[in-house]
């Protein structure tokens, strides 16, 4: 069963002079096992939207159901929230316990699992994020490097075996190799745990690599929704919105404008080069 968002509207400070509608009439379904990329300018409503997915915020109007649990209902919300794992941008918001082991077990403990199951899950989660158990289990999370902290924070959510994994800018502030490692890890969980992934990212290149469905938010509304191919064909429009489409998509748009008529939906350098090669061959044959 999926997460279903129906006509969701959310207004901050309803009724006051500062009332601000952050989300307008959003309808969206997140299917089982799907990888959804969520993009939008700062202030487009991305953060507000993902907080609706596990009931941290409730719609002003409309409805969110997680596997049939109505997130407007206080009792059902708890069951729904247990299915949705949420990783926030900075691991520093989450790490608190004495050891990495204890910190990762915080979530599973809250799920009221038994000791043996918790232990099994913590070990499994640490393995999945690439933290060596013997080396890290007894370390304080505050002594870790930035990358290790992020892994620990991820493991803390993974150990809850979420059916839906929601990530807010999971790669922010990491260097290129760190970014790649985290993205590969996320793809890894998805395969091993079969969970759906909703990822918010400013980096369109990362979204282009992994997402099956891309949702573009603009001032609280769904501006466009589709496959990466469809979305990144609109490189110029995205650029205008202050979003930076993948380099290859921008390049393809620029070349098209220059008179090289390339097919739509190119958003990786490799695909672009293939298309250029094909185009060149085609030209020569004429």
């Amino acid at each position: 069963m999926p997460i279903v968002i129906e006509n969701l509207t959310y207004t901050y400070q309803t009724g006051s002079v500062n009332a601000f509608t952050a989300l307008k009439d959003i309808s969206l379904t997140i299917e089982d096992g799907e990888f959804v990329g969520l993009i939008g300018h700062t202030g487009s409503g991305k953060s507000t939207l993902i907080q609706q997915l596990n009931g941290l915020m409730q719609p002003t109007s409309g409805r969110v159901t997680v596997d049939g649990f109505d997130m407007n209902d206080k009792k059902q919300r708890k069951s729904g929230r247990a299915l949705v794992g949420m990783v926030f941008q900075y691991p520093d918001y989450q790490l608190f316990d004495e050891t990495v082991y204890k910190d990762i077990s915080f979530g599973p403990k809250n799920l009221k699992l038994d000791e043996a199951e918790i232990d099994r899950r913590v070990r499994e989660a640490m393995r999945l994020v690439g933290l060596d158990f013997d080396e890290f289990a007894e370390k304080s999370p505050f002594e870790l490097s930035g990358g290790e902290k992020r892994r620990t924070a991820l493991a803390g959510i993974i150990a809850m075996y979420p059916k839906y994994l929601v990530l807010d800018e999971p790669m922010a502030g990491l260097d290129p190799s760190g970014r790649k490692a985290v993205l590969e890890m996320i793809e890894g969980f998805r395969k091993q745990l079969g969970c759906a992934v909703v990822m918010v990212s400013h980096s369109m290149d990362d979204i282009a690599r992994s997402a099956e469905k891309v949702v573009v938010l603009r001032s609280g509304e769904i501006f466009k929704m589709g496959t990466p191919r469809e979305i990144f064909s609109m490189a110029d429009e995205l650029n205008e919105m202050g979003l930076e489409p993948p380099f290859a998509a921008r390049m393809a748009a620029s070349l098209r404008r220059g008179g090289i008529d390339l097919p739509h939906g190119l958003y990786t350098n490799e695909a672009l080069v293939d298309a250029l090669e094909a185009w060149k061959r085609g030209e020569k044959h004429v």
């Binding site: 918001y93 989450q94 809250n110």
Partner: peptide
């Protein structure tokens, strides 16, 4: 919010239990 998302329970229990439940928020 980050701790609520990990299933932290801040509302139930007596004063002592609730104070303890605040640790995951206060420490970070």
């Amino acid at each position: 919010k980050a701790q609520l998302a990990r299933g932290a329970d801040l509302e139930s229990g007596n004063v002592l239990k609730r104070a303890k439940a605040m640790l995951p928020i206060l420490i970070p």
